[in-house]
Structure formats: C-alpha cells, structure tokens
Amino acid sequence: MSARRLEPRPAEKTRLIVRLFHLWFLFRRPMTLGVRGVVYDTQARTVLLVRHTYVAGWQLPGGGVEPGETMEAGLARELEEEGNIALAGAPELKSVHFNRQASRRDHVAVYLVANFRQTRPHTPDGEIAEARFFSLDALPEETTEATRRRLAEIFEGVPVSAEW
C-alpha cells in the first residue's frame, strides 16, 4: 500500500491561504479597521448582499481599509470590487463596532449607501461568488447574524451594539 498524499481541494486551499494571510496581517498591522456598506435601493427597499468564496453566508459588502486610505475611500473601493457599485453621493456613517471575532484590535465602520449606481452586474470571481439585491423582508436564510443585526439597527431602530 503506497502512502498517497491527498491534495486539498481548491476551496480548502483558498481558506487556508486566507487564514494564513490573516495571521500574517495581524502581526504586520496590529490595529485593523474595516468598512461595510449597506447599499440600499430606496425605491425597491432592497439591500446588496455578497456571498464570498471562502466564508459561509450572505454578508454586507466591504473589507479592510488600506494604509493611507480614508474609510470612505476604502468603502468605495470595496463596493466597486465586490458589487460593481459606484458611489454617487456621500455615504452616511451609521455605526462602528468592535469585531473580536477577527482579532482583539479590529473595528468595523458601517455606512448606509443610498446614492449609488451599479456599473454592471457582478460576475463571479475568486473572492465573490454572488452579489445580489434582496428585499429587507426576504433575506436569504444564510444571511449572517451580524448582517441581520446591522440591518435591524438601521431599518428597525434596534439599539446599536458596540460589538460586531
């Protein structure tokens, strides 16, 4: 019987690479700041959610703010990358949350984006499997709890939590 090494599947390999990068990132940049956008179509009462290729669930689009970048610039970049969304006006900062799931030093700013245009429909790529608008009263079952909480804080008047 020969010892055969099993190669990880592409998704497992991607998750491992993302985790290793995250650990490297924590050592390299001890304080992290992220942004998330609640891209809201006021006429249709729908919000944009994304499904990543490397983590489960539907989430608000966003990501890390890069060195030398403002939060709004980081938000604009992430929305373009993840949903082909271009800001057409100033986003409104709604809340900032401590994200202990990411690290002991991570914070996430949540912006409401009601003035935007979608430059083209999203096509799946290595990071985002899907990006779609959903009605606030018909979110996908796989929507993350943090996403549901942020939406409830903004649209239902639920008190804002200090934690993600």
Rank of each mutant, 00 (worst) to 15 (best):
W24C: 02
E156P: 00
R5M: 14
L93I: 01
P67D: 15
A114V: 11
T119I: 04
P61E: 07
R120E: 13
N115C: 06
T123A: 13
E153A: 06
V158C: 05
V160H: 01
P124K: 00
F21H: 12
G64F: 15
G57L: 04
S161G: 12
A73P: 15
R15A: 12
F133Y: 12
L151N: 00
T143I: 04
F134H: 14
R117L: 13
L139Q: 05
V50E: 01
V110H: 03
L87P: 06
L26F: 02
I17Y: 09
N99I: 00
A131Q: 09
E69S: 13
E7R: 12
P124T: 10
F98D: 08
E7W: 06
V55T: 10
Q101I: 08
R45C: 02
A73G: 15
V158Q: 13
G34R: 08
G63A: 12
S135E: 12
T144H: 07
D125P: 02
R104H: 08
L112S: 09
V96N: 03
Q43T: 03
A138E: 12
Q43Y: 02
R104K: 14
V96F: 00
P61V: 06
E66M: 15
S135T: 13
Y111D: 00
R132A: 08
H122F: 13
V39Q: 01
G62Y: 08
S2R: 02
T119P: 03
L112W: 09
P30L: 10
R132D: 07
A162Q: 05
R15H: 11
H122T: 11
F25A: 10
M71L: 13
P159R: 14
F133M: 12
P121G: 10
R51P: 00
R149V: 11
A102W: 01
H122D: 11
V38R: 01
E12F: 08
F133E: 04
E78T: 05
N84P: 00
T46V: 05
A114R: 15
A88N: 15
D137V: 09
T123N: 11
H22N: 06
F27A: 09
E92S: 04
Q59F: 03
F134L: 11
E163G: 09
P67T: 15
P159S: 14
E92R: 15
P30W: 06
R104I: 03
A44K: 10
T70V: 12
M31R: 04
W164I: 01
E153M: 11
A88L: 10
E127T: 10
G63Y: 11
G74D: 08
E80F: 15
V96Q: 09
G89A: 06
R28G: 07
L33G: 02
T42H: 10
E12G: 13
